[in-house]
Design a protein around this nucleic acid. Sequence first.
DNA 1: CTCGCTCCTGCAATCGCTTGCATAAAGAAT
DNA 2: ATTCTTTATGCAAGCGATTGCAGGAGCGAG
Lengths: 330, 330
Amino acid sequence: MRNRLRYCAGVAVTIRDVAQAAGVHVSTVSRTFTAPQQVNEDTRNRVIEVARELGYRPNRAARSLTTGRTNNIGLIVADLANPFFSSIIKAAQAHARERDYHVFVADTDEDPAVEEELVQAFTKQVDGVILCSPRITNRVITRLAKDVPFVVVNRRLRGYATILMDVAQGSRLAIEHLRELGHRKIAVASGPSGSWTSAEMVAAARAVKGIEVETVGPNTPTEQGGIAAAAEVARSGVTAVLAHNDLLAIGLIEGLTELGLDVPGDMSVVGVDDSLLGRLNRPKLTTVTMPTAAAGRLAVDLLLQSVTAATTLETSLVIRESTAPPKGHP
Amino acid sequence: MRNRLRYCAGVAVTIRDVAQAAGVHVSTVSRTFTAPQQVNEDTRNRVIEVARELGYRPNRAARSLTTGRTNNIGLIVADLANPFFSSIIKAAQAHARERDYHVFVADTDEDPAVEEELVQAFTKQVDGVILCSPRITNRVITRLAKDVPFVVVNRRLRGYATILMDVAQGSRLAIEHLRELGHRKIAVASGPSGSWTSAEMVAAARAVKGIEVETVGPNTPTEQGGIAAAAEVARSGVTAVLAHNDLLAIGLIEGLTELGLDVPGDMSVVGVDDSLLGRLNRPKLTTVTMPTAAAGRLAVDLLLQSVTAATTLETSLVIRESTAPPKGHP
DNA sequence: CTCGCTCCTGCAATCGCTTGCATAAAGAAT
DNA sequence: ATTCTTTATGCAAGCGATTGCAGGAGCGAG
């Protein structure tokens, strides 16, 4: 074992250095890593050993220049701090890493203009983009899709790879649950305008017989948004409200409480996401679960296999403490 | 061949296409974007116009190959879903984007081995790495720092760019607050082993006169970790506990409640982070604020200017509902 | 009219790696 | 012994951009 150990600080170890040290041509080193079966076992082992000693790491920029692939995936969400998105991100990231891909995450701050800009910035830097609950229009997505492959989560878009969470199903369960409790008039507090999820929720709620549905919104899907919407919900004469997500639901509860209303005594509240927040909140939130981890993993798979498929994932209802029979109900 | 490797319907527009269409040499196009003052105004305008029409976007891989810079920053955190980290990430990302840098976020799942591996994976793909509340040892960081510039958040490391949050100061305020309420024996529920923040907290607590300090831990800094630690805290005969972060504090409250203890009646709980979670929790969490957004921005600045500086950011105490005088106290 | 200077622009090498093709060596088949 | 395979390696052409250097145009001064 010769002492060839030298982690030269700052000086990059290139494929050439390895080739020289191992006494082979650069192409052999290259193939050792990209097509190992083409290289003689002894040679391969020697190259690997030398590379390890020298601390060689392939330069991905150079690699992508020739292969045209970057081994990076872009992931765009409206708000990194929203547990709904962070759960998708975590799953996507772990899944991508197993496939030797990295994930660029970007946060649009709920701004469609920023969203479009970010997609453009990602083009050529990533092999594909996962767009979660987009705020931009389908028209814009279609245009952008010319430049980079897409997977869209929670937006219906014909002819593209999409992953939908069957929020209609979960919403239906939620509304039926409320109906069984005795509620007859409820509100749907929707999310940002253009949200497919919100539209689905409203449609699903309207489809349930024996229930009158008001809509309140659009709202910013944050705690603040919920607080702001509380007054309108209180005013609307409903006894229960289905919120676009857990954050909004929690804000609603906060706002309603400040208005002197008790949840669930005076008003039942149902969220969507099943996030940690909902579990921690008091009262614990009744909520529609969203298969975020599955969606994250699936999005990566669809992107890497470049399959154009429309997948729908199941949702369900978790009944906790924020729903109860309306006042004066037996 | 070249076109087979492209996914996009549209053919990639290169600097060469722009040069040809504008009737100039590629180098002129290049300079138009990287050194505009060197190019005649008319030529420059024409090139810019043609580039816009053709939809030209410089290939970052090619650019980094020659410049040696990637315009990417790596950001490593233990848990993306932890609001403490997501706040840092959001700030860093927004700040970096203004400087035409992108941020690669990676989640180590609290695993030091993954952390080290991720740093190595980032090397050569990014111009620098921001390491938040590392779980790896200083020795490992020092070794890795040979390969890529670092900024470390919440870890003291001589000779490197570090950003510390003065959690000792905040902890002191918290303990003094508890002492004034009448508590005499408290616990510090620490975070993961190797956490600088936890060490600071314990030291600061011990330094406060008139208070006896127990330590409980190490704990996983999550809600689950808090639930798990509740029994030991209850057993230890203290009347108050300072938790490593809000998540842990919330878990503790949950666990203590299940054990039949009232917070803050039987046990006061103080968190660290001032996250949304703490504000939403009932009782609302008394907590030490952490300057996460400032840290995120500063980390980017330090990295891009490659300054080796040790900065300490202030913290403070927010008193809410999870702390009260101990039982039987006047 | 020539020299020297400043501005622009073109030329060509280069970054680190991949990959089609050529070539060499070693058996296997004839 | 000759030819044909098979396997392993070397050679060299790029990928798309940047950048030091060289040279032409234009212009004022000598």
